[in-house]
Simulated scan of single mutants.
Amino acid sequence: MLSIFAKNGSETPEPVKAQVIGSIPSWLQGTLLRNGPGLFSVGNSQYNHWFDGLSLIHSFTFSNGEVTYRSKFLKSETYKRNIKADRIIVTEFGTMAYPDPCKNIFSRSVTHLRNIIPDFTDNNLINIIRYGRDYYASSEINYMNQIDPATLETVGRVSQRLSP
């Protein structure tokens, strides 16, 4: 099971000075953004595949031979819905979400029928792309989430049909 190998990450919302072993060239200036799975369980439910963990965005800022680090979870609609429900309710690549077992039989039937066409995830945990002056968390799904590269705040979800 994935939980044996994966541990939940945590946010570091405020920049933290990194300990540097050796030296970083003083000419290296800028910010490196990275994205990947960071939350592998919600409540008592766990993801079954490495590609399913909720996105954690990392920022490494290089300035005058020093590095600062920060990270934040991508506040996608999938993240918000799962956190609010305190369990996984949006199906991912290797993890099927199931209806709430506490609902009455009529609600479960309607929910089951609705789940034939699953809600599509917007958990963009693969890449960070720049389009003009905007930055987006992206993956192979229908949506991207715009992020603020300075604060790592999620600006909002957009369709991947961007035009120049």
Rank of each mutant, 00 (worst) to 15 (best):
M1R: 14
S3M: 12
A6K: 13
N8P: 04
N8V: 09
G9N: 07
G9S: 11
G9E: 07
S10Q: 09
T12C: 06
P13L: 02
P15H: 06
K17S: 15
K17I: 13
Q19H: 01
Q19I: 10
Q19F: 00
V20D: 13
V20F: 04
I21A: 00
I21S: 11
G22Q: 09
S23C: 07
S23A: 14
S23K: 09
W27D: 02
W27F: 15
W27P: 06
L28N: 10
T31R: 15
L32C: 06
N35E: 06
G36Q: 05
G36A: 06
P37A: 10
L39Q: 03
S41G: 02
S41L: 01
V42M: 01
G43E: 03
S45E: 15
S45V: 13
S45D: 10
Q46D: 10
Q46T: 15
Q46I: 09
N48M: 10
H49R: 10
H49C: 02
W50T: 08
W50M: 15
W50F: 09
L54W: 09
L54C: 00
S55V: 11
L56G: 00
L56A: 05
L56C: 07
L56M: 07
H58M: 00
H58W: 09
S59Q: 15
F60I: 02
T61S: 03
T61L: 07
T61E: 04
F62T: 12
F62Y: 15
G65S: 13
V67N: 04
T68D: 11
R70A: 15
R70F: 11
R70Q: 15
S71M: 04
S71T: 12
K72V: 13
L74H: 01
K75E: 08
S76Y: 00
S76C: 14
T78W: 00
T78R: 04
K80M: 08
R81T: 07
N82K: 00
N82D: 10
I83D: 06
K84Q: 10
K84R: 05
A85H: 12
D86Q: 15
R87A: 06
I88Q: 06
I89G: 01
T91A: 02
E92Y: 06
G94Y: 10
Y98A: 12
P99C: 13
C102N: 13
N104Q: 05
N104I: 02
I105Y: 13
S107F: 11
S107D: 15
S107N: 08
R108V: 11
R108L: 15
S109Q: 12
T111L: 14
H112C: 12
H112F: 14
N115H: 13
P118N: 03
D119N: 10
D119T: 12
F120T: 13
F120C: 02
T121H: 01
N123C: 04
N123T: 11
N123G: 12
L125W: 04
I126K: 04
I129H: 02
Y131I: 14
G132R: 02
D134M: 06
D134I: 11
Y135L: 08
S138D: 00
S138I: 14
I141W: 09
I141M: 14
I141E: 00
M144C: 08
M144A: 15
M144H: 05
M144E: 00
Q146H: 01
D148A: 11
A150G: 04
T151A: 07
L152M: 05
V155Q: 06
V158T: 08
Q160H: 14
R161Q: 11
R161M: 02
S163V: 03
